[in-house]
């Protein structure tokens, strides 16, 4: 049995399980064996002092839904790509926009933004006042420059 820190019911009536990040992989693998084969969504939430990662899992046969939450202080969580293929792009997206490093991901690159982009836009401390441009040098590699002009 995997140790669950807290089990509550959310505002929308879905079961929420909080788990330590060391036990995350074991819990998801348990759930997958119990019919939760569809990993619907991975969300990173920036709580300023820590990062929260939320997994929405779904059992299509029984029509059950469960939300698994874990927290990280050092921006690192284990990757679940070995269990769910759908985690691949979700984790890349959360790495791209939120800066969460998924340990064990086979190809952890930015999904939407250019590789040379500086910063992770969905972080609360991301500087919106600067405009960022992506340029290309003579070798074909791209690099970012900043314009202190009117941002948001």
């Amino acid at each position: 049995m995997v140790e669950v820190i807290e089990e509550t019911t959310g505002k929308d009536g879905r079961k929420v399980m909080k788990v330590a990040k060391e036990n995350l992989l074991a819990l998801l693998s348990d759930l997958k064996d119990n019919g939760f084969t569809h990993l619907s969504l991975i969300t990173g939430v920036d709580r300023k002092s820590k990062l929260e990662v939320v997994y929405h899992l779904h059992n299509m046969n029984k029509n059950e839904y469960v939300v698994v939450k874990t927290e990280t202080l050092d921006e690192r969580v284990p990757s679940v790509t070995s269990l769910f293929k759908s985690a691949d792009w979700d984790e890349r997206e959360q790495y791209d926009l939120m800066g969460i490093v998924f340990e064990g991901h086979p190809n952890l690159k930015r999904l939407f933004l250019p590789d040379s982009w500086v910063g992770h836009p969905l972080r609360k401390n991301y500087d919106l006042s600067k405009v960022q441009y992506i340029n290309m040098d003579e070798n074909g590699d791209d690099y970012a420059t900043f314009d202190p002009g009117d941002g948001w």
Binding site: T37, H38, K85
Partner: peptide
């Protein structure tokens, strides 16, 4: 179908 569910 199994592949479809695994890929979301």
């Amino acid at each position: 179908p199994e592949v479809a569910i695994n890929y979301g």
